[in-house]
């Protein structure tokens, strides 16, 4: 059975860019442990010679000519943004 630790949960939360409190991490540790524990049911299956399915249809890469097409303009692209300046998305500094 799986044994997820709180440290793992905090690490995964960081990877997922999700701020969680200590309390939430504790709760999530239990829940994820239960779900992963359940998912280990799959270990009953012998899948040594089974190909993974990423996609149910036999699709090939879809290509088109590399030409610029009209889509939304800059003004439209910015109109739902939480913050913007000089025609660009505005964010806080990336470096501390």
């Amino acid at each position: 059975m799986s044994e997820i630790t709180k440290e793992q949960v905090l690490h995964v939360a960081h990877l997922a860019r999700l701020a969680i409190t200590d309390e939430e991490a504790e709760k999530m540790t239990k829940e994820l442990d239960a779900i992963i524990g359940y998912a280990e049911l799959l270990n009953e299956l012998d899948t040594d010679n089974v190909e993974p399915t990423t996609h149910v249809l036999d699709l090939k890469n879809v290509m088109r000519e590399d030409e610029a097409r009209k889509w939304i303009d800059r003004e439209d692209a910015l109109k739902n943004a939480p913050d913007q300046k000089n025609g660009q998305f505005r964010v806080p500094s990336i470096l501390d």
Binding site: Q8, A16, L45, T47, E51, T53
Partner: peptide, 26 residues
Amino acid sequence: IMLGTFALSSGYYDAYYKKAQKARTL
């Protein structure tokens, strides 16, 4: 999001994500 990030994270990908893809084939 947490479950998915865990299943795709380094060291767990084969055991969970890929295993599930194989189960999907079956």
